Amino acid sequence: MIKLIECPRDAMQGIPNFIDTAIKAAYINQLLEIGFDTIDFGSFVSPKAIPQMRDTAEVLELLDLHQSRSKLLAIVANTRGANDALLFPQIDYLGFPLSISETFQQRNTNASIAQALETVEEIQNLCEVKGKTLVTYLSMGFGNPYGDPYSPELVAEFVQKLDQLGVKIISLSDTIGSASPELITQLFEIQIPAFPHIEFGAHLHSRKEDIAAKVKAGIGAGCSRFDGALNGFGGCPMAKDELVGNMATERMIETLEGLGHDLGLNKAELNEAMKLTSFVFNQ
């Protein structure tokens, strides 16, 4: 079964002008009508670091979850954020960004990789106690621009460490949009057979014309969990390329359905959400 994770949090977080809390909630409520597996809806991080997400708790209280099959995921960057997120029973998943790049880990969470791994262990233990699931994102999972060490073998070493901590979902993340279909195939063909008890996902950034090839590469290598954002909004500012955003969910849907996958989505509600994006993101 294919799992689509819609990521309004990732789409919104880099927008400098604050999006009104009610608008955020209305947009996410529309996404909840579509039938995505999970909505990455917000983050419990420092408001100084990500000002756009300072109202995540308020947004959560405005969400209507009663008729939705979608689960909620919140990003956290430390144990304090995890404890804040765990106060809300509506949240199913906590997401933590663990980088293969030492430079990016410092920039992203102000911690070393060694410290971040300790945090992963702490959050994993908290999730087990609270009945939640930790999703660990291996950022810079397809290379980095800093000259830090990178190889498919290094990715495997990180996966092994996370497996030892009991992490059950790992999303390989292409933070700067550099992953080729060939590398996507290689990484998933290495990891998925070696760790059959782990659910692997793909959080990729891409130009729109490259999305179909990347989805096909992931599917062909056994990946069945894909993150995206409608219209491809969001992405990594460090990419320094406005054409490289999140994987456009509508393009992924088109590709997956073309491959014969029934995603069980409500297309009428999807069309309504697509109409809202221009208003929400002021494009």
Score class of each variant (00 low, 15 high):
residue 50 I to G: 12
residue 24 K to Y: 07
residue 137 Y to K: 09
residue 8 P to K: 12
residue 84 D to N: 01
residue 111 A to N: 07
residue 100 I to G: 00
residue 238 M to N: 10
residue 271 N to E: 15
residue 268 A to C: 10
residue 229 A to G: 09
residue 36 F to A: 14
residue 146 Y to K: 01
residue 261 H to S: 07
residue 40 D to P: 10
residue 118 E to I: 08
residue 133 T to I: 11
residue 36 F to M: 11
residue 76 V to T: 06
residue 40 D to F: 15
residue 207 R to V: 10
residue 248 A to K: 13
residue 268 A to K: 12
residue 280 V to A: 06
residue 25 A to G: 02
residue 74 A to Q: 14
residue 250 E to I: 05
residue 31 L to C: 04
residue 159 V to R: 04
residue 238 M to A: 14
residue 134 L to T: 00
residue 138 L to V: 01
residue 2 I to G: 14
residue 279 F to V: 09
residue 61 E to W: 02
residue 144 N to T: 04
residue 96 F to S: 08
residue 226 F to M: 10
residue 257 E to Y: 03
residue 27 Y to F: 14
residue 152 P to A: 14
residue 172 L to M: 11
residue 52 Q to C: 09
residue 126 L to D: 08
residue 149 P to D: 08
residue 63 L to W: 12
residue 158 F to D: 09
residue 162 L to N: 11
residue 129 V to A: 14
residue 26 A to K: 10
residue 6 E to G: 01
residue 177 G to M: 04
residue 54 R to C: 09
residue 227 D to L: 00
residue 39 I to Y: 03
residue 249 T to C: 10
residue 174 D to H: 05
residue 110 N to G: 02
residue 42 G to F: 03
residue 66 H to T: 13
residue 274 M to C: 12
residue 117 L to V: 04
residue 127 C to T: 00
residue 111 A to G: 02
residue 238 M to R: 05
residue 184 I to V: 15
residue 248 A to E: 09
residue 20 D to T: 03
residue 101 S to M: 12
residue 155 V to I: 03
residue 188 F to Y: 15
residue 128 E to A: 14
residue 148 D to C: 05
residue 13 Q to M: 10
residue 233 F to D: 09
residue 27 Y to H: 10
residue 100 I to R: 04
residue 271 N to Y: 10
residue 130 K to S: 06
residue 99 S to I: 11
residue 251 R to D: 12
residue 22 A to N: 13
residue 16 P to N: 00
residue 160 Q to K: 12
residue 262 D to F: 04
residue 198 I to Y: 13
residue 72 L to D: 12
residue 174 D to Q: 14
residue 48 K to T: 00
residue 37 D to R: 05
residue 56 T to P: 00
residue 101 S to H: 07
residue 52 Q to W: 08
residue 183 L to E: 02
residue 236 C to F: 02
residue 223 C to L: 04
residue 17 N to M: 02
residue 10 D to A: 11
residue 196 P to A: 02
residue 146 Y to M: 09
residue 170 I to Q: 09
residue 7 C to W: 03
residue 23 I to P: 00
residue 202 A to Q: 09
residue 96 F to M: 00
residue 227 D to V: 05
residue 191 Q to T: 14
residue 61 E to P: 00
residue 195 F to L: 03
residue 94 L to G: 05
residue 166 G to Q: 11
residue 240 K to I: 06
residue 8 P to N: 15
residue 65 L to G: 01
residue 41 F to S: 03
residue 27 Y to V: 04
residue 124 Q to Y: 09
residue 133 T to S: 08
residue 149 P to W: 04
residue 43 S to N: 07
residue 119 T to P: 10
residue 215 V to I: 15
residue 23 I to M: 05
residue 265 L to A: 10
residue 90 Q to W: 01
residue 272 E to Q: 13
residue 224 S to G: 12
residue 249 T to P: 00
residue 101 S to W: 04
residue 113 I to E: 07
residue 105 Q to P: 10
residue 203 H to T: 11
residue 98 L to R: 02
residue 136 T to R: 01
residue 159 V to E: 03
residue 217 A to W: 02
residue 131 G to R: 07
residue 150 Y to M: 01
residue 156 A to I: 00
residue 275 K to Y: 13
residue 149 P to R: 01
